[in-house]
Design a protein around this nucleic acid. Structure first.
Lengths: 124, 124
DNA sequence: TTTATATATGAACAATTATTCAAATAATAG
DNA sequence: CTATTATTTGAATAATTGTTCATATATAAA
């Protein structure tokens, strides 16, 4: 372990390992990228939305299907679908009056798969 | 496309594709697993926590390092670290007065990697 | 012991958010 | 056209949450 020299940053924040901080700053992903990544995780971090997404892995569903599946209002589902659509996690296809929602691409499934592996191996 | 028979569930919710709902229900992950997965995504879904985790990919840091790195109070960092620790996303190691935090296992890095791939390819 | 350092904890507050309800579109059927 | 079905939208509300401040704990130094 290298010796620790307690110093301060310009703003007055205490710092023990300046090298670590410099490195973390240097390797950090661009702010915009980090923000978008956080938004995607956040979207998947709500039980309702997560179950919607996981349900859509089995195939496309319309709004009222998802509402029945989750036991929620169609309005609630529609609100969440808009959020997921804005993040390009799901896409829609119209057939007459009915809108069919499905996962936007395979990355979404990948995200879920890795996440499931984590929670399954993490504490069986 | 098979013909659509609009029916109702016992609770009175409108259903267009009963087969889809049945399948989604059948293939759904256990509730406890889904809840934990959502909690993990939620933890990564906050910009502060996400930057903490991404910073720790470069190596362990103590609380005040992370505070300096993010420009936040050590108290704020400590609160978030507890949350991440409860979810087994980070672990701590004590050396004297200093607590060094690091990623709990490789799954966490994997989650970040897949997530970054998604946002990078998603909208270059 | 006392003093200082590093981190944790609890209460409080502002800000965000998931859901519901009511009303508005969009497409189709009559 | 009017009526019906499927979905969307906006406002309102209750619940959750990230941060700060003040205080407490833990380890080390004097």
């Amino acid at each position: 372990m290298p010796p620790i020299s307690s110093t301060e940053e310009s703003c007055g924040i205490r710092v023990l390992h300046q090298e670590r901080i410099r490195k973390a700053r240097k390797e950090a992903a661009p702010e915009k990228e980090t923000a978008r990544l956080a938004a995607v995780y956040k979207a998947l971090g709500d039980p309702t939305r997560l179950r919607m997404i996981m349900g859509l892995r089995e195939g496309e569903m319309c709004v009222c299907d998802l509402a029945a599946f989750l036991g929620l209002t169609e309005s609630a589902i529609s609100h969440q679908l808009r959020l997921l659509r804005d993040l390009a996690l799901v896409k829609k296809r119209r057939d007459g009056q009915i809108l069919y929602y499905s996962l936007d691409d395979d990355h979404v499934s990948d995200l879920l798969r890795v996440g499931l592996e984590h929670v399954r191996e993490g504490q069986g």
